[in-house]
Computed example of a mutant assay.
Amino acid sequence: MLVLPAEHRLRRREDFARAVRRGRRAGRPLLVVHLNSGGDPHAAGEGASPPRAGFVVSRAVGPAVARNLVKRRLRHLLRDRLDQLPAGSLVVVRALPGAAEAGYDRLRDDLDAALGRLLGRAPR
């Protein structure tokens, strides 16, 4: 099973809040990506901490089966893009209601466009 490695997962409410409130945001039709590349203050003496990501998929997206499918797709997509993120960055991907009906390719395109905008790259 392909999952996001444990060291790359956001778990604490404070980390989600820091990424959303203090990070930059890029919106797309299916999702909104928040990126705080300020680093993790809890890992000050440990060197560069890995980028960490979290996902917000609310009930507005659909029933539990649809929400879980969207989360799995987003985790898989972001796992393949972790090497593009700055060390210590926090990323929160919030799925919008249309994400449940969208296919894998549309989610990928929206995620790539949002990350490209946040990281200062032209979209692929």
Rank of each mutant, 00 (worst) to 15 (best):
V3K: 15
V3N: 14
L4A: 05
E7V: 02
H8A: 12
R9D: 02
R11I: 02
R12N: 13
R13G: 13
R13V: 14
R13I: 10
E14T: 09
E14I: 04
D15L: 12
F16L: 12
A17T: 14
A19W: 01
G23K: 04
G23Q: 05
P29A: 14
L30Q: 03
H34A: 08
L35F: 00
N36M: 02
S37I: 00
G38I: 01
G38P: 04
G39E: 05
D40K: 08
P41L: 12
P41I: 09
A44M: 08
G47D: 07
A48S: 12
A48Q: 09
P50S: 13
A53F: 00
A60Q: 12
G62R: 11
P63R: 15
P63T: 08
A66T: 11
A66E: 11
N68E: 07
L74I: 11
D80V: 09
R81I: 08
R81F: 03
R81W: 03
P86W: 01
A87Y: 00
S89E: 04
S89M: 05
V91D: 03
R94H: 06
A99Y: 01
E101L: 12
A102F: 12
D105C: 06
D105N: 09
R106H: 13
R106V: 10
R108P: 01
D110K: 11
D110L: 10
L111I: 12
A113G: 09
G116E: 08
R117H: 11
R117W: 00
A122H: 06
R124W: 02
